[in-house]
Design a protein around this nucleic acid. Sequence first.
DNA 1: TTGTAGGCGTTATCAA
DNA 2: TTGATAACGCCTACAA
Lengths: 352, 352
Amino acid sequence: MNITARATSIKTVARHAGVAYATVARVVQGKGYVSQATRLKVEQAIAATGYQPNAIARSLKANRSFVLGHLLQSTVPNPFFVQVAAGAEAQAHEMGYTVLTYNVQGDAEEEKRGVETFLAWKVDAIVFTTPVRASNVSMALAANIPVVQVERPLLPDSDALTVNNYTGARAAMEHLLALGHKRIAYVGQSLHTFHNTLADYVETQRYGAYQDAMRDAGLPVDKWVALGAAYTLHDTDAKGLGYRAAKRWNRHADAPTAVFAGSDMLAAGVYLAMYEDGRRIPQDVSVVGFDDTLAAYLTPQLTTVSLPARELGKCAAQLAVARLQPERFACPDIASFGSHLVIRNSTTQSPG
Amino acid sequence: MNITARATSIKTVARHAGVAYATVARVVQGKGYVSQATRLKVEQAIAATGYQPNAIARSLKANRSFVLGHLLQSTVPNPFFVQVAAGAEAQAHEMGYTVLTYNVQGDAEEEKRGVETFLAWKVDAIVFTTPVRASNVSMALAANIPVVQVERPLLPDSDALTVNNYTGARAAMEHLLALGHKRIAYVGQSLHTFHNTLADYVETQRYGAYQDAMRDAGLPVDKWVALGAAYTLHDTDAKGLGYRAAKRWNRHADAPTAVFAGSDMLAAGVYLAMYEDGRRIPQDVSVVGFDDTLAAYLTPQLTTVSLPARELGKCAAQLAVARLQPERFACPDIASFGSHLVIRNSTTQSPG
DNA sequence: TTGTAGGCGTTATCAA
DNA sequence: TTGATAACGCCTACAA
């Protein structure tokens, strides 16, 4: 495998067709004057030599790569970010852009390497879904290219796509309350120890909706709450926070009749604990999840709050491109992301 | 946002330091003779200007990008390929390479665009996990760069990493047989209608293990079999083939006491059907899955066959790099991938 | 309508 | 030890 063998360039084609290579360039790009006869000659030469334009050279010259860099906070086990990525790719392709995806797996140093790689390769814009460390976002911004932060912005200085998690979470709570539940537990991601309202955006909304709903219903806000790691980055097992919290609650005679879990993965752990302790879902205890990732694969299928993952990705890509080519692409509506409750079979009337 | 603003180059640094730009290049690369004094001057200039080497220019010159292109057959809903991708990235980074990941989502045309993109960007090697269409693999091979096909090779002409699915599948069957099950059903991916032994590698092994085990045990091989789509690319719902097959089987008085599902996603569907029909897992019916993706999130936790997803990715990356730099990196052992049974809580003695 | 030539940011080969 | 310069493949004035 001779790695230094170069592919056929515009020059090879030109020699083959007996024209200057500027002529080949004109044919390839389809602009500028070229006579029918020479165009034909060149096209034949291109076919014969199997010429493919070199994007690297083109990008070096144009200072423009038509590539978007997409940093994913993690890809396993929570598939949410992967769904965002799929949306971003689809939208970008439609607009003539390519997306390079870099999985950070929750590691800020890895995220730094990702940003550096993207900057070295002169991507046209960078999307963070979601950023891990604020300084990495700063680094991207310093390159003076469009930056989009999806779902959990860490810095206020760039475009950000946030989802109203409150409405969906509140709807979930109202759903449980309407079913007559009074002892409703919450298990979710703990807030950052340092005070960063931007970073805590999502958790604050989910947990806040729980607190507000309970308070408004005249129910205790702090009695059944477990905060911790809602998404375990490296394991693939339901026996995390949700499992442990539910096991603990189940030891009480007046155990909760409903659990609102801050993620589907936590809900899966709650399922397991309930199964082990002989509490049936939904007859004995109702469960609501969040994210709609695992939900439809669980038995019974999980009532959960759905987020517009794919749309977020599409919007992020469109926003980045709109910043790059405002004359060609309109800025999408970035204020419209909501969450909504999907009622399946894990919730029912409170047993009393 | 002025997208044509160019970043500081080696020239800016040279001017800043009052040296020729070749000198800066020597400092940046750390090779060639540079006096202590000028090195210091240059380093200060680099810091002052915030210079970052331009990978595009470097790659154009060197005809070498230190980038691997990774085509993923799909990323949602089945997370298997994503796990492979994470392994490939980790290994590549260790060897000084970057991985660009391109999600194909099962679409052969999209895969074609992916290969074209990678070739245009002159990636050093291409990994298919797994290839969708043979001609796309051919296209990659035609560029005369290392090509690795992971798990389901479509062409025999390149490096391929395959997993012995038979041993794990056979172990699953022996497990069920040892538990006294006689009416064991199989639900899995249908074979290709066109005869391609390479493409059918995986399915043939899983289904073949079922058939062999049943035959060797003197049990009927064709009685409880459902073949179809084991991974639904676009939906996120358990109500697919596994669900439908189990619902159908459950209508018989002598319904199977065990189900061997060719994927965890199918097993999730089987769970749902059993739940709806009041058949308890594992007391009334045992279930075994394949892939170990959803398994630990299901209730009860699913006995399944685990594949070395991460290791496959790592090996694919190492293999590609070994082909590129045989003097620096050894070729990994590519013949050692096995599958193994992970016994959890979805299997028990046959009820009779 | 076509050809020539300069430059994008590097690296590498010569001279100086 | 340093500097000048020619590529790499492509694009684009400008000249012919």
